[in-house]
Write a protein that binds this DNA or RNA. Sequence first.
DNA 1: TCCCGATGGTTGAAGGTTCAACTAAACCGC
DNA 2: GCGGTTTAGTTGAACCTTCAACCATCGGGA
Lengths: 153, 153
Amino acid sequence: MAVMTRWLDPDEQRTWRAYLTASRVLMDTLDRELQREAGMPHAYYEILVQLSEAPGRQLRMSQLAQAAGSSRSRLSHAVARLEAAGWVRREDCPTDRRGQIALLTDEGFATLAAAAPGHVEGVRRHLFDALSPAQVDQLRRISETLADHLTGS
Amino acid sequence: MAVMTRWLDPDEQRTWRAYLTASRVLMDTLDRELQREAGMPHAYYEILVQLSEAPGRQLRMSQLAQAAGSSRSRLSHAVARLEAAGWVRREDCPTDRRGQIALLTDEGFATLAAAAPGHVEGVRRHLFDALSPAQVDQLRRISETLADHLTGS
DNA sequence: TCCCGATGGTTGAAGGTTCAACTAAACCGC
DNA sequence: GCGGTTTAGTTGAACCTTCAACCATCGGGA
């Protein structure tokens, strides 16, 4: 028997369209700002942030991919570029000969430190300044629910 | 005088991280589903949707770019591919000799009609099924506020 | 011990996006 | 109607992401 499509009602349509537009414009804006001011896309910034917060400023590739929300392949390519830029270094993992450890160089840390204020300012201006405290709270709950739902299934 | 960075407080941090994760995973999931089931990325699907809803199933390139939230350049490249796939056709604009009109072919419409149920089902499953009606409403307001804020500035 | 499946990571090719440069036509003030 | 400035759209190069294929190593069972 054919399964009927559960189409979106007008309210859902409107919500979905608004969400699509807002998230796309927000991300495009932040990405462009970061590219202009720090010379890297947002995904690369995320990688540096995750490394900077890890103990010893280093992580196994897999864990870094996980933390940065990246595929392994993407991370491999990205780290290759970050390494060429001198911001990250690779080392062999002592406990697993298959493993690689990515570590943030001092130069990478300095670049991140230089980029962070501008980026945070952008996040604040484009996101938090537009929302009421209640809305920020709602957005957090919605996002956490969604993330759970998506990764749980 | 140096401008102090308005850093994010812990709640804002948490909100921002949750938002980043959720929106990235959501979009990645939908994109992959669409690629697998319809052979096109979400951005291309958006273009076909906009064309399908336009009078005469056609739009000027600029208006289509606007509607689909795409840059002109991106749209040019995309339409070139969609044309090669036989889903879109280009015509000269009769009233402006600089202009180009993109129009959805019957084949393009059929492809879209075939892809839509699966995609809508995905949006419902991954987004709406996870949220309460109140949260859907909150998300709509937040997104509309954000979009206004971003495009207004 | 040997084998086999799972895990960690890389690679190359194909496809998508961005940016800057460019052509052509329309608009505007004079 | 002339000359400069927008606007419409395309192009190519550089870059980023994805996908599938691949190699190496690890871990567990017979």
